[in-house]
């Protein structure tokens, strides 16, 4: 049994038929072919699948797809203006905050949710904000540097 689901994905309306038990992550990846949110743990422990729902960072692997009816979902595909990438993406690139790149889309979205609410966070606030995102490559050092570089520009 499938149900009709309508929501806004990266600023565009989408309609898709989903099973009641489908996760938002599976619908994004397998039905809408939006592949930047990654399936790494599928239990809400790692943050690689994080997306923004009405501006809040959420692990999409433990979010039922049907719960985003009428809401705004954002993935990194929806960041930036035209050909211009988002300042966070630019900072992640310049500061070498992405090594293997697998956790990167999720961390960038969590950072965006933080900066949208708190444009001038302290290093401790940034560290706290991304503590739900596992990264095995970077030791988080250059990730935090990159987010702080954007935060500093806001000051």
């Amino acid at each position: 049994m499938e149900y009709a689901l309508s929501f806004s994905l990266n600023g565009k309306p989408v309609q898709v038929a989903v099973k009641a038990n489908s996760s938002l992550l599976d619908v994004l990846r397998n039905q809408l072919f939006v592949t930047s949110p990654k399936k790494s743990c599928d239990t809400g422990d790692c943050g690689a699948c994080a997306v923004l729902i009405d501006g809040e960072a959420v692990n999409s692997c433990i979010t039922l797809a049907l719960t985003v009816e009428g809401k705004k979902v954002t993935t990194v595909e929806g960041l930036g203006e035209g050909n211009q990438i988002h300042p966070l993406q630019q900072a992640f690139h310049e500061h070498y905050a992405a090594q293997c790149g697998f956790c990167t889309p999720g961390v960038i979205l969590v950072a965006k949710a933080l900066l949208d609410k708190n444009p001038k966070p302290t290093r401790e606030e940034v560290t706290q904000a991304i503590s739900g995102n596992l990264c095995r490559c970077t030791g988080y050092v250059k990730i935090i540097d990159a987010i702080m570089a954007v935060a500093e520009a806001n000051k």
């Binding site: 743990c41 239990t43 422990d45 560290t127 706290q128 596992l134 988080y140 935090i144």
Partner: peptide
């Protein structure tokens, strides 16, 4: 799962100097 096999998160690292 990552809930019972703990790897360090951002809050666990202390200051790293390389």
């Amino acid at each position: 799962s990552f809930a019972d096999y703990m790897i360090p998160v951002s809050k666990d690292t202390g200051k790293i100097i390389a």
